[in-house]
Design a protein around this nucleic acid. Structure first.
Lengths: 101, 101
DNA sequence: TCCACCTGTAAGTTCAGACTGACAGGTGGA
DNA sequence: TCCACCTGTCAGTCTGAACTTACAGGTGGA
């Protein structure tokens, strides 16, 4: 999640979504970046849980993928970092124990 | 600062420093990474203000560069992101206005 | 039918960041 | 003198993220 938010372009995307849901093409136009690139970043943000996508069929039949911000509130301190790191290590261990089968 | 902290290796460095000041070579050994690499990351962390370095001459005359954590406490929310982004834009404007002379 | 929208993805390039090995230089102790 | 420490930096490799162009497919309206 920190890796996702630690990128200027993605911060701009968050800003672009801060005023409400927008569909992908529109957002790409607003930010002046290519649509595929925007997809890439949105994917990362979505994996990080900072954003959600929702494909909707508008009343006129056109498909539009709307994205919106997921409210987040992270209190970032040394302890949080340490805890996250420990959690990651356990994740790693789990993988090691699970994948060998 | 977000970019600096959004990197697993650097989180590990923060963890390595969490128990007190350590000098570079020692820390590199503990983390199992090469010293030049550690320098690189420490540099970024220092620029981000998360860490400070201090070159000391030990009583036996040997030079040792000690690093230690700078306490940080960032309350990360949508508003903080928007504010940071605005601040960045002003920075950018300043540059544009200042460099051309 | 053609045009203007939209989604989604598969190329391919390019560039910065991450990383290693090797060097120079300095100290103290055996 | 040689060895074991330390700092600091350069040159090079390499991988992955970031980014663009281009495609395929779908809808509604003129």
């Amino acid at each position: 999640m920190l890796a996702a938010i630690g990128h200027p372009q993605r911060l701009r995307i968050i800003a672009g979504l801060s005023e409400g849901r927008v569909h992908v093409s529109e957002l790409a136009r607003r930010l002046g970046i290519s649509r595929p690139l925007l997809y890439l970043h949105l994917e990362r943000l979505e994996k990080a849980g900072l954003v959600t996508g929702d494909l909707e069929l508008a009343s006129d039949g056109k498909a539009m993928k709307y994205f919106e911000l997921v409210p987040f509130d992270l209190h970032l301190t040394e302890d949080v970092v340490l805890a996250a790191l420990r959690a990651d290590e356990e994740e790693g261990l789990k993988d090691v124990q699970e994948t060998p089968r």
